[in-house]
Amino acid sequence: MKTAKVNFTDSYIELAHGAGGKASRRLIEGLLVPYMMGDKPAELNDAAYVEANGSRLAFTADSFVVNPLVFPGGSIGELAVNGTINDLAMGGAKPLALVTTLIIEAGLATSELEREVAAIAKAAQRVGVPVVGGDTKVVEHGKADGLYITTAGIGLTDPRVSLSSRNVQPGDHVILSGAIGDHGITVLLARGELDLEADLTSDTRAVWPFVSALIEAAAPGLRWLRDPTRGGVATALNELARDAQVAVILDEEAIPVRPAVRGACEILGLDPLHIANEGQFLAVISPEYADIALKTLKSMPGGENAKCIGEIQAEPKKAVLARSQYGGTRLIDMLIGDPLPRIC
């Protein structure tokens, strides 16, 4: 066996390696990919593609750890279904089936477990995707924050779309499905440590119905999809700029942010562009299909806040820039580590 070309020098795994930003990327590309994919890694997307009997299947797995388990607008069980369905949707695939693995901490109340199992069932039912199997493990008390869930999913790609950062062209439009930051801020506030209160709910939802509608209306113009979860919109777009060797130019004022998300971000010194979402997606669409795509999203319940937030340019490569109305420009970086509230 050939030795893997490892390029990861951090001595310890820290929380930042799981936060979805730069450190996560280093871990995946420097250690995981060299071992698992060798010299010629496939494009790293939310879902992988597998060919079987002439069909192109999308295959994905996602793990869910969240504290607290229940928060306004959702819970870990609902996230575990929606997150995996969204990963399939981002691969342009109609979700077919899910399997879930529960890692339960000894001492978890049965009522809590039942609540989450019911949440899984309900969320799966809502999008019409069956849970066809799973596994259960119980670990010692103090070792799993109550409950961890891993959900794997399989889906069937639509032959009309080809989604890849390689397809992204200068002039393409960047469309965002709705207001950002709701999930990350809701969970942050739900922990109660910051003593902040707001009428906010997580945006967790399955976005497949929107993607399905986009495919019907604008398949030939659809180039790239990504759900901006951990690391937020800034991280997702930086990955796009890097992978596609293009610039993403944002109109910052166009990005929909709810008042309470903005308020919390101002108080805590955070940037909404770095906050996690669980029910939004970014779409890069060719200019001739951009209008119909946006119109399609806006006509659907829950898609009213969709916006064109920017466009792709050839230069400066690998950068995400935001332009303001008065001519100021700022560089939008990936998230470094976890978003930390600051006082300075």
Binding site: Y12, I13, E14, L15, A16, G337, L340, P341, R342, I343
Partner: peptide, 19 residues
């Protein structure tokens, strides 16, 4: 405060120590 969590001391940052 969150600001301090990534400041390096001789043997690492508060975040590293926490991890």
């Amino acid at each position: 405060f969150g600001d301090v969590m990534r400041v390096p001391g001789k043997h690492g940052t508060p975040l590293e120590l926490k991890a």
